[in-house]
Design a binder for these strands. Structure first.
Lengths: 344, 344
DNA sequence: TTGAAAGCGCTAACAG
DNA sequence: CTGTTAGCGCTTTCAA
């Protein structure tokens, strides 16, 4: 059970600790004779030595650790992955990071809980933050000089790298599509709308499309709650209570759509026969449901990959040069929309 | 951007570094005057000092870090969360750990990839491993003396704490239920069956139930692949190709069921009218689908909570005393099963 | 081509 | 009650 350290290896190989360090790290400034290298490797194998990355990062200031902060959808709600979007994103981040020899330090973030913890604390080489809003917390972070990549955030600050999608454009695309199918009264259903948040942008896109088509934005077609299945259910109830005034809905997350559809079905209201739906994300679920969802597709895997790429790039670069990355969107047609023709 | 260290705080407060350390850690062996404590706290606040947990763990041998290893469902397949079960479990683990002041070091594990990396490397206080099989890797781990909790593993080794469910019993319950509904030919659909794996146990439970009822276990009713949506689709195709010989299926994961149902629906075969399904897990998805799934419910949140509880308990205890925890299961009836009456 | 020595930032005896 | 002194396990000048 004795911890074997670099010194033990050194002793075993009959060299000094620093030599062992050199061969282990392939330190480019030092050249090692083939013979010593072999002896060291043999000792490493024999003693089953595994370097302590913790100590390593303490002295070298590189930790091979990436901090990942994922919002808790609701304060006090533990299932940050109740939206499968986060699961898919995290998978992709983890995989990419691992391929590059990095580990992930994962933490949920309750709103307004100081980010510093995860960050400075562990000497992470970089941080990926998903879906945050501008705020004091972020500013604290930036003073520590760790590269930060914001995913899906509209925080306009050149100190953070950014990766996102054309939320507004995607929403407009979705809404236009519905209009193209003959719908005139289109609901908007989303999580909470916050200044500079993703949902705000999507709402704008929705409004734009309506206005372009000469349609009015109707207060009673607006539904906003939390991004989860339960709220989808609730929204369905509200829709029914308000008298089913719309023939279609643009819903800003697949998981919401699923709840909405389920809620409607319980009251014998069918999609797409009674109401058409276009949603957003194209989580793998979107194709699994019945009816499958016509939705705005974003490449979640790519988003994760890019995030890691960006953060590592920034960690290696000495100069901070701001990078912004916007991923493309496209509408995928499935079975949740039908043509609508106004009863004459 | 200068890193502020404990020394800076000490200087600012006019005390020694150790004193600062004492007040920060509330070291019980030392008592600190109220005055010094205040001065130190003030300095901490003023300099915005955040302790470097890395250095802390190097010297104290406690890292407040828990390693979490989640299997990559398929080698080379990056989406470990393609099965929502893992997402839900991780959410729960993360949340519980965070409440206790622990961070998570997350890593996927490709089969046969040495676990040591994540472990010894970072001085984790404990490790949670999900769904692994007996093997050399595990044995390596145990020599390092870090407490390990195995979730959903049938590795019989008193050196590992264990948390799981009655897989066999659950499967039997599911199969019996189907039999009780009049079904006589019942398919078994699962991921790969491995010695001492979860699916093996579930297969045994399935066989037991069949035999109890005097039914024969039919080779052609057996489907085994990978635990993901795609394989569900494939299994559906196989079922059709083999001539739809069964009137019901016990499927060992909700996500598989979803694929299976979808695959059938594409060929106009309906659940539960044409074939009844009982599945396993009761992921939040199970209630979202159409038809909603009759499934064996397990408390995933509790599984995660228990896992960190166990690992932390073990980390604090000096003595290693083996703990095993088996969570209860129950069948939840929804809409994927119907009574079957043999055509006469 | 290798080794000695000085830390990285913090904790933990042990003195005082 | 507080400070001194050694490290934790590794990297990294700098000198040999």
């Amino acid at each position: 059970m004795q911890r074997v350290g670099i010194k033990d290896v050194a002793k075993e190989a009959g060299v000094s600790a620093s030599t062992v360090s050199y061969v282990l790290n392939n330190t480019p400034t030092e050249s090692i004779s083939e013979d010593t290298r072999k002896r060291v490797m043999a000792a490493v194998k024999k003693l089953r030595y595994v370097p302590n990355l913790n100590a390593r990062s303490l002295s070298s200031r590189r930790s091979n650790l990436i901090g990942v902060l994922i919002p808790q959808t609701e304060p006090g709600k533990e299932f940050m992955f109740s939206n499968p979007f986060y699961g898919e994103l995290l998978s992709s981040i983890e995989y990419t990071a691992r391929q590059q020899g990095y580990h992930l330090l994962l933490s949920g973030t309750q709103e307004d809980h100081c980010y510093l913890n995860i960050a400075q604390n562990r000497d992470v080489d970089g941080i990926i933050i998903v879906g945050t809003y501008p705020g004091e917390n972020l500013n604290e972070l930036k003073r520590m000089g760790v590269p930060i990549v914001l995913v899906d955030s509209y925080v306009m600050d050149k100190d953070f790298h950014t990766i996102g999608i054309e939320d507004k454009e995607g929403a407009r695309m979705a809404t236009r599509y519905l209009i193209g199918k003959g719908h005139r009264r289109i609901a908007f259903i989303s999580g909470s709308i916050r200044e500079n948040g993703v949902n705000m942008k999507r709402y704008q896109g929705y409004c734009d499309a309506l206005q372009e088509a000469g349609l009015t934005v109707d207060e009673s077609a607006f539904y906003s709650g939390t991004v989860d299945y339960e709220y989808g259910l609730t929204a369905a109830q509200q829709y029914l209570d308000r008298g089913r005034q719309q023939t279609a809905a643009f819903i800003t997350a697949d998981v919401l759509s699923m709840g909405f559809i389920k809620g409607l079905r319980e009251q014998k209201v069918c999609v797409p026969d009674d109401i058409s739906i276009v949603s957003f994300d194209d989580v793998y679920l979107a194709n699994m449901t019945y009816p499958s969802l016509t939705t705005v597709h974003q490449d979640i895997g790519e988003k994760g990959r890019k995030a890691v790429e960006l953060v590592l790039e920034a960690a290696k670069a000495k100069e901070h040069r701001y990078t912004e990355c916007i991923l493309p969107l496209r509408l995928v047609e499935r079975d949740s929309v039908r043509e609508w023709r106004e009863p004459t």
